[in-house]
Simulated scan of single mutants.
Amino acid sequence: MKDLNFLKKVCEAHVPSGKENIIYPIIKDNFSEYADNIKISKLNNIYVHKKGIGANTVMIMAHADEVFLMVDKILNGGFIEFKTLGIDPKSLVSQKVLIHGRQDICGIVALKSKIVDDKLIEENLYIDTGLNSDELKSLVRIGDYITLDRKMTELLNSNISCKSIDNRASIASIYVCAEELKNVTPDLNVYFVCSCQEEVGHRGAGMASYDIKPDIGIAVDVTFDGGVMGDSDRENTLNGGPVICIGPNIHPKLRDRMINTAKKYNIPYQIEVESGNTGTDAWDIQISEGGIPTLLISIPIKYMHTSVEIVNMNDIRNTGRLLARFIQDLSSSELEGLFCF
């Protein structure tokens, strides 16, 4: 239950892109028993360092930011017009949000329809805070962040629903990995990275890669479930295990090593093919520092970029276990052979 409590803390935190410092105290408090040092960079990457025996380094990265809204206009009557980042507007109707102004203010997303001659000609979304215009303008400014406001719900069969499962599920998986490695001194130095600004272009991934200069980079993110109500073009299923990516963004020998690790320890896994840009931090890690051999491990979720994303706890735990066993079995002496095509 320790990992479930941690998932609840990080999911319910409000951490839009550029404000990742908000989650730093939670990461520091919970990772401190597994780390030799923890620090935050100038632009909010969080680095959790576990020292190894040798000089080589593996970096495991999960982005900390979540999709968000921003205040665009403050209207008469105390309503707010907003812009979205990564959220389908139709999923926002009647949702509760939190406006991060001079103080946090609760709001409700309201739908206003305009009908002429019995025909719907316009639908607009606004945020209603219950405040009048003067009160609202004293507390909220144009450009203030707005985040979805949803508490975690435990569903049946180890399924969990909350906002920002993307990508706090992955942070929870590296927390599991850190716990699995608590009494292990690996051959490689390990950096667990909570990267900044992934949702606006994977910016933190490049920064961290140049800061840490790892020999191996592993991005951990979420992917689309392919079941009922999911992406029918994919075969990923909840509770099917971590999804190992195959494609030009991924180093083939490291990928095979990860698959063999899953088989060795009887950890369930799935395969996903990405023929181009994976849309994750892996894309930027790979081309940093003259090229970093990179892997992408994903956790399947439902209803991505909504307030009711769903993940299975077994997938989080098995992802953490797979990462830990991969690191535990890896020695510096093997790297040269692994990196040769």
Rank of each mutant, 00 (worst) to 15 (best):
V140R: 05
A110K: 13
G130I: 08
T153N: 14
C177M: 15
E123K: 13
A178R: 11
I160R: 02
I115S: 02
R141C: 13
R150K: 15
L125A: 09
A110H: 07
R102T: 10
A178S: 15
T84F: 00
K119H: 07
R141V: 07
K90F: 14
I121Y: 07
V93M: 00
K83L: 14
A169Q: 01
I174F: 11
L120T: 00
L131N: 04
G130F: 05
N167M: 04
K151L: 12
E180F: 12
G143M: 12
T129Y: 10
L125W: 02
V140T: 09
S138H: 09
T185A: 11
D117F: 10
L92P: 09
I108T: 04
Y145T: 10
V116S: 09
L139F: 08
A172M: 12
M152D: 12
H100I: 13
L139K: 13
Y175V: 00
C177T: 12
S164R: 10
V97W: 03
I171N: 05
L181Y: 06
N132A: 02
E180M: 15
I165W: 05
E123M: 09
V93Q: 01
K119C: 04
R102F: 07
K83A: 05
K114W: 09
D187F: 04
P186K: 00
V116W: 10
N167A: 09
S138N: 15
L181T: 07
S133Y: 14
N132V: 06
I121P: 06
I105H: 05
I165F: 03
P89T: 05
C177D: 07
Q95T: 09
K83W: 08
D187H: 06
D104F: 04
I115E: 00
E180D: 11
K119I: 05
V140A: 07
A110S: 12
L111S: 07
L85S: 14
N167F: 11
N132C: 10
F82D: 01
G107Q: 01
A169P: 06
